[in-house]
């Protein structure tokens, strides 16, 4: 566990852990708030990590999205009675190392975690042409329609169900499986 917890850092730990707990209990708004708070820090973390390894940081947003997906799919591995930040750091570092390996770099991965890093002032880049869009197009038929309806077109589960004549349960299953498949496609490396 990192020792360099400055006083200010008590805040994100407590606040984020609370949001994560609420999210795990089914509070979608709290969960969304957490992911939105994490994104700028992940952006900085990814840009730093890529720059330090001599890889251009042009595709930092891809790394951010891959980490967010991993956080989502592995969220149950956080033990709710344990600190949140070490868990978050471990997930982020693991995915960053993975990305660097796929790019043929075994190089330095920053030892510092997100904790020490101030949020990036930069907003999300305007371009929406991330790797994830390409990966969505590689999903199978139904998964692809459901995932793109929800994530690219911003439809709700309910609207998506109506649109494709599916039950909401079936949409949820297809969507969740699609997300898992996307994580696997990332790993295969594009």
């Amino acid at each position: 566990m990192p020792a360099a917890n400055k006083p200010d850092d008590a805040l994100p730990e407590t606040a984020w852990a609370a949001l994560m707990r609420a999210g795990l209990a089914g509070d979608a708004a709290a969960y969304r708030e957490l992911l939105e708070a994490l994104a700028p820090r992940l952006r900085k973390f990814a840009a730093n990590g890529l720059a330090r390894s001599g890889v251009g940081n042009a595709d930092a947003e891809d790394v951010v999205q891959e980490i967010l997906l991993a956080i989502h799919l592995k969220r149950q591995t956080w033990m709710q009675d344990q600190p949140f930040l070490p868990w978050l750091n471990a997930i982020a570092r693991h995915k960053l190392i993975d990305v660097l390996r796929r790019r043929g770099r075994r190089g330095e991965v920053p030892i510092e975690g997100l904790i020490e890093i101030l949020p990036d002032a930069q907003p999300e880049p305007e371009s929406s042409h991330t790797e994830l869009s390409k990966l969505v197009s590689r999903l199978d038929g139904k998964q692809q329609s459901v995932v793109s309806a929800i994530s690219l077109d911003g439809n709700s589960i309910k609207d998506t169900a109506a649109k494709f004549g599916m039950s909401e349960g079936a949409v949820r299953v297809a969507f969740h499986r699609g997300l898992k498949k996307l994580a696997a496609l990332y790993r295969e490396g594009a």
């Binding site: 999210g23 979608a28 708004a29 969960y31 969304r32 992911l35 939105e36 994104a39 947003e61 951010v64 999205q65 967010l68 997906l69 989502h72 999300e124 929406s128 991330t130 994830l132 995932v147 929800i150 994530s151 690219l152 911003g154 709700s156 589960i157 969507f175 997300l179």
Partner: peptide, 10 residues
């Protein structure tokens, strides 16, 4: 990324 976050929370 905002769209992804919205989707993940759904």
């Amino acid at each position: 990324t905002d769209d992804l976050i919205a989707a993940l929370s759904a």
